[in-house]
Simulated scan of single mutants.
Amino acid sequence: MHTEFTDLVAALDIGGTKIAGALVDDTGRIHLKTQRPTPAQEDGERVMAAVDAVLDELTASPLWPRVTAVGIGSAGPVDASAGTVSPVNVPGWRGFPLVARVRTTVGGLPVRLVGDGVAMTAAEHWQGAARGHDNALCLVVSTGVGGGLVLGGRLHPGPTGNAGHIGHISVDLDGDPCPCGSRGCVERIASGPHIARRALEQGWRPGPDGDTTAAAVAAAARAGDPVALASFARAAQALAAGIAATATLVEVDIAVIGGGVAGAGDVLLEPLRRALADYAALSFVRGIKVVPARMGTEAGLVGAAAAALQGADNSRERPRPTAV
């Protein structure tokens, strides 16, 4: 086992499918990892019991005495200022006081909460595709569209932990109503389910296996299906408009694209880069790069650890993550 680290933090990655936990050092190395299924349809206390089971395994480690803080990346909405979470896909948690509950379980250690898109951003900036960039936007394009920002070389989660949530920028003023209450949001156009919905509405038909996911639409697009290609082009256009708007406001120079839909590769990235050339026309945003994410399935844990290392409880600074 490696022991040349100085800081060790506990990280939690909480989603609708699984609750993962890890002990992570200040170079991003994971020393212990565990997970439990999320009882997403159960009441809030049963969900918390799954979190506690993960924490129990972490606290039983002989490394636990070296843990200085806890970072949590959670499906949202989250409210870091209040320490609460209300994940859309975990109905038992509405305004659930997750930070206070975790802090009690871990004996009062500092706890930092961020949204899952911000956690992914922290990971990509620390160890992934945004490393070396002081101003970056990272996107998670999946069942929804989330994101986060790095500004001035530091993670910028905002007061509630949701800054950079590009999915709910409106890019079509007369577009479809979004569950968030707005219209024409990036998420309403570019998320996986909406890519598939649009393709089906325009006449695309799945193969013999009946697969109607965005991955199936991507496979059809790679094979040259014009309807599938058009659905991805529309998603790319929405993403480009959102990226350009963000870059114009805060001058990011790179956009990192992750999440399940990003697995489509050039089917998404090529039309995205073309559309961005149209939307990002001003001189100070014209050179923005678009690259795929690198951190994969570990992004949530590594990013939660990075957030904890950069400042627990949103009120006190801690040592910054160490590059490897």
Rank of each mutant, 00 (worst) to 15 (best):
D52R: 15
G300S: 09
A20T: 03
R112C: 10
R234T: 14
R234W: 11
G117L: 00
I169W: 04
L173Q: 04
G192E: 00
G16L: 02
S315I: 07
P37E: 10
A307N: 11
A20M: 02
A49E: 15
R94D: 06
A245G: 11
H2A: 13
T84Y: 03
L137Q: 06
I30N: 08
A305L: 12
G167I: 00
I257E: 02
D313S: 15
C178M: 07
G144Y: 00
T17Q: 05
D211A: 15
I14D: 02
G203L: 06
D26N: 11
I254V: 15
T143W: 00
G153F: 10
V47N: 11
I257L: 08
L155E: 05
V140I: 15
L239T: 03
P110A: 07
A196R: 10
A280F: 12
D278T: 13
A22M: 05
V291F: 06
P271F: 07
A216S: 14
A230T: 13
G83V: 07
R188G: 13
G76D: 01
G181Q: 01
T38C: 09
A215K: 15
A275C: 14
V267F: 08
G158S: 04
R112P: 09
L32P: 09
T322E: 11
G167H: 01
L229F: 09
G148T: 01
P226N: 13
G224Y: 05
A216G: 12
V145R: 00
T121Y: 02
D176T: 15
F5A: 09
V290R: 10
I14N: 01
P37Y: 04
H165I: 00
D253C: 04
V70W: 05
L137T: 04
R188W: 11
P177G: 05
G260N: 01
V285K: 03
G95F: 03
L55Q: 06
P206S: 10
A312P: 14
T68H: 06
R234Y: 12
R46A: 15
P179Y: 01
A235K: 04
E270H: 14
P159E: 06
D176P: 13
P91S: 10
I254G: 02
A130C: 12
G95T: 09
L32G: 06
G296M: 14
A220L: 05
L309I: 04
R198T: 04
A123T: 05
Q237T: 09
P77C: 00
R274E: 10
I14R: 01
P177H: 06
A136G: 10
W204I: 06
V141M: 01
G296T: 13
R154M: 14
